[in-house]
Design a protein around this nucleic acid. Structure first.
Lengths: 398, 398
DNA sequence: AAACAAAGTTTATTCTATAAACAAAGTTGG
DNA sequence: CCAACTTTGTTTATAGAATAAACTTTGTTT
C-alpha cells in the first residue's frame, strides 16, 4: 500500500522538502538549504538542479556576501503551473485560476443558480466554464494541472463522489470522475469548509492548526490539525453546525434542540430578524439569502435593530467558537461564508464572548475573517498541493 | 530538523513498517510481508533478520502449505521489553508493568494521597515504587526500557514539564527530567486523557480515530485522529470540560456558565445528589470522591434516587458526546475515569441521548467504557511506542 | 597582492532496495 | 514412488540515493 520507501521515494520526499523550504524562505541559497534541511550540499545541488529543470524553481541573482562567494538566491516559480478552483454555492458559482502560490490570476462569478438546476445541467455548465478558463489561462511551463471543486455538502474527497448537498437537487454524483474524463487532468472535490481551511492554512505559513468556520445557511467547519487537513472517517468531520448550545433551546431541522446553527447562522439571523425586529413591519422582512446584504446596509445606515441582530449572532458565534477553541486549542480561528462580510457588526461581540469563554491557555487564539473567494482558492490550492506532492510527474502541457 | 531521509532513515522506516505488519498480522510469513508491504522479498528477509537479532521478532514454526514450501510464521515478541506506566490521580497512584503488547505483567495501587503531598514527597515516593518495580520486572532481552506517567492536569509532553494540576499542590515541575536522571531510561509524561486514548487505540487495531473522555472531578478528552494522538498546540487539546452546554446555565469555576463539567462529571453528580436527593437527609450526603462508589452501592441496592442521579449525568454526558461525535466523527468514543465504573446505571440514558443527538452519518459511532487501569497502561504504551519508533537503539539492558 | 572565507560542484564511497537467479521444501498426479 | 510443479526464502549482482572530502569559483579582508 505504498508504505515502502525505496530510493525513488526517498528522493521524491527530499525533493519536496527542498521545494517547500524554498517556498517558505524565498531567496534562500543552496548552502542555507543544506544547513536548514540537514542535507548534504551535493544532495541539495542535485535536487535543486532537477527542480530547476522542471521549472518549479528559478535562480534570482546573487545575494550579498558574508565574507566569501556570494550565494545564488533561489525562488519558487509560482507561475510554473496553474490550477482551477470552483466554488459551487446554493445561489452562485465562483471560478478562479490560481498559480502555485494561491495567487488569483483570473476570477469570475458565474450567473448560475445551482439550487434550481439538475445534475446534468450543473455538470455541463461547469464544464463549459472550465473549458473556457483553461483556454484563457496564461502560458506556463506546465499549463493547467488540475481542477478543485468546493461544495457545500457531504462529499467524499477520496472517491470524488458527491453524496448529498442540502438545499440543492444534487445527490449521488461522481463529479470528479465525470470532469476528469472530460478534461484529462486531476480533479478533486472537497467540502467548502475544508477548502476554506486549506486556503487559510496556506495564507498563514506559521500556523500549524486552525479551524475554519463556514457560516452560511448552516455552519460547517474545516480542521487543519498539525499541518494536515483532518477529514475524519468517511471524509466527514467538522459538522459543528449541530453542536448543542442549549439542550432545551430552539428546535432544529435535525430533530434536536439548541443546535448552534439555530443561533449563529444566516438562517438564525433571518429568523431573528423576521420574528423579532421585523415582526410588526412586514415590509422589513427578508426572504432568504438576501438577509446579510440587506441588514448590512441597514446597519451601516445606522439602524440599531440591525446592529443588535448582528451582535446577537456574533454572541452565539462566540459561544460555539469558544467550545472549539477549548476542545482543539487551535492557533487560529477563521470565520468564512457570507456572514464574514459583516465583520464590522459581528466581530466585537463575537470576540468578547470568545475570549470570555475560553480557558486561559487557549485564550490567545487568533481570530480572522475570510474573503468570499477563499473556498475557490482553497480548492485550487488542494489540487496544486496534491500535484506538487508528486513533483516530477506533472501531467498536462503548457 | 530531521526532515532529511537518508539511507539509514529509509531503512529505519521500512523496518518499522515490517515490525508493525508483523504485530498486526501475527504468524505472517516473509513472503506475505513482501506482498502486503510491497517490499522486495530480499528486503523483507534482511529486515526480519535484523528484527530477530534484536529479539523483537521470533519465528514460530511453519505454517500450512498452499502448494509449495511451507511458510515460516513470524511473531512479534511482546515480552522482548517491558515499560512502566504510572497513573497519578488526586487520591491514588497506580503502577503497571506492561510488555510491548500492552499486557499487564504487574499492577499495583499505591496507598498514596498525591493531593496532600509536596512535589518532593511525590517524586521520592514515585521513584521508590518505580525502583522496586524495575527490580521485580521479569527477565527480558531489553529489560525495562522506559517510564510513562499519566497526570490529571496540564503537562507538556515534549518538555516533560508539569505546568499545573488542579486540586493538587503540584506546579511547575520538570518531572520527566527528574526521573530520567534518576533511572537513566526514557521518561514520558502526558495528560491522563491522552494516555487513556492511546491505550484504547492500541486495544482496537481497526480503529483509526477515537475520542477518550475522562470523566473524573472534571472532564477531559484525548483525541486519536487518523491514527495519531492529537495534542494540539502547546500540547493542550481536548479540554472539553468547559464546553458550553447551556449558555445561561450553571456557574462554573472557570467563570463561565453552563460548562459541561457542571452537568456530567463526578462533581456534577455530587452536587446533584447533595443538593437535590440528599437535601432533606444530611446523613445521605457525600463528601467528595466517595460519591461514585456510594451511589453505585445505593443504586445496586435499588435506590431509585441514586438511579435517577446516574441517569441525569448519563443524559448530559450524551449531550456533550453528541457534540464531539458530530464535530470529529470518530469511529469510537470511550468513557473513562471513575464514572465508567457505573456503566450499568449511566449507559442507557447516555447512549439514548447520544444517538438521538448525533447526525445520521455519525450515528453509528461505537461506545465503550474503559477499565480503571487504561491510563497507566496507555502511559506505558506511549513509552514503548516511542522506543520502538527508534528500533535499533533501544537503551537499557535486561 | 596574499590570505582567507563562503558557495557551489565534482568524485569516490557507502548504504539501500531491487531484480533475477537460485536453493529449499513442500504438493500433485501419474 | 518419482518427476513436474509451486511456493518460500536466500544469494548475488546491480542501480540509485545521499554523503564526505576534495576541489573550483568568487567573493572579502589585511
Amino acid at each position: 500500500m505504498a508504505m515502502v520507501i525505496d530510493a525513488a521515494e526517498m528522493r521524491r520526499r527530499n525533493k519536496l522538502t527542498v521545494l517547500n523550504a524554498i517556498r517558505n524562505h524565498p531567496g534562500i541559497s543552496r548552502a542555507a538549504l543544506s544547513e536548514s534541511t540537514g542535507m548534504n550540499k551535493a544532495t541539495v545541488s542535485s535536487l535543486v538542479a532537477e527542480l530547476m529543470e522542471e521549472q518549479f524553481v528559478v535562480e534570482a541573482g546573487p545575494g550579498s556576501s558574508t565574507g566569501g562567494r556570494r550565494p545564488i538566491r533561489l525562488q519558487f516559480h509560482a507561475n510554473a503551473a496553474y490550477s482551477i478552483g470552483v466554488d459551487v454555492q446554493i445561489h452562485s458559482v465562483r471560478l478562479v485560476l490560481c498559480n502555485l502560490d494561491h495567487e488569483v490570476a483570473w476570477e469570475r462569478l458565474l450567473p448560475m443558480e445551482p439550487a434550481s438546476m439538475s445534475s446534468d445541467e450543473l455538470v455541463s455548465q461547469l464544464a463549459d466554464s472550465i473549458r473556457q478558463l483553461i483556454h484563457e489561462a496564461p502560458k506556463s511551463p506546465h499549463g493547467v494541472i488540475g481542477i478543485g471543486i468546493s461544495l457545500p455538502g457531504l462529499v467524499n474527497y477520496r472517491t470524488g463522489y458527491i453524496h448529498y448537498i442540502p438545499n440543492m437537487g444534487i445527490r449521488d454524483l461522481p463529479l470528479a470522475d465525470i470532469l476528469q474524463s472530460e478534461f484529462h487532468i486531476p480533479v478533486f472535490i472537497d467540502n467548502d469548509a475544508n477548502c476554506g481551511a486549506w486556503a487559510m492554512y496556506r495564507a498563514h505559513p506559521a500556523v500549524e492548526s486552525l479551524v475554519f468556520v463556514n457560516v452560511g445557511i448552516g455552519i460547517g467547519a474545516g480542521l487543519v490539525l498539525g499541518g494536515q487537513l483532518y477529514r475524519g472517517i468517511a471524509g466527514l468531520a467538522g459538522e459543528y453546525g449541530h453542536m448543542t448550545i442549549d439542550p432545551m433551546g430552539l428546535r432544529c431541522s435535525c430533530g434536536n434542540r439548541g443546535c448552534w446553527e439555530q443561533y449563529a447562522s444566516e438562517s438564525a439571523l433571518l429568523a431573528l430578524w423576521n420574528e423579532v425586529y421585523a415582526r410588526t413591519d412586514p415590509g422589513l422582512r427578508c426572504t432568504g439569502f438576501d438577509v446579510v446584504p440587506r441588514l448590512l446596509e441597514r446597519a451601516q445606515a445606522g439602524d440599531e435593530n440591525a446592529v443588535r441582530a448582528f451582535a446577537h449572532v456574533g454572541h452565539y458565534l462566540g459561544v460555539g467558537l469558544a467550545n472549539i477553541a477549548n476542545a482543539l486549542n487551535p492557533e487560529l480561528i477563521v470565520i468564512g461564508g457570507r456572514l464574514a462580510a459583516s465583520e464590522r457588526f459581528v466581530r466585537e461581540e463575537l470576540e468578547h464572548t470568545l475570549r470570555a469563554r475560553t480557558l486561559p491557555v487557549a485564550r490567545d487564539v487568533r481570530l480572522a475573517m475570510a474573503e468570499a473567494s477563499v473556498q475557490a482558492v482553497g480548492a485550487a490550492g488542494i489540487v496544486a498541493e496534491e500535484t506538487l506532492l508528486r513533483t516530477g510527474d506533472v501531467a498536462g502541457g503548457g
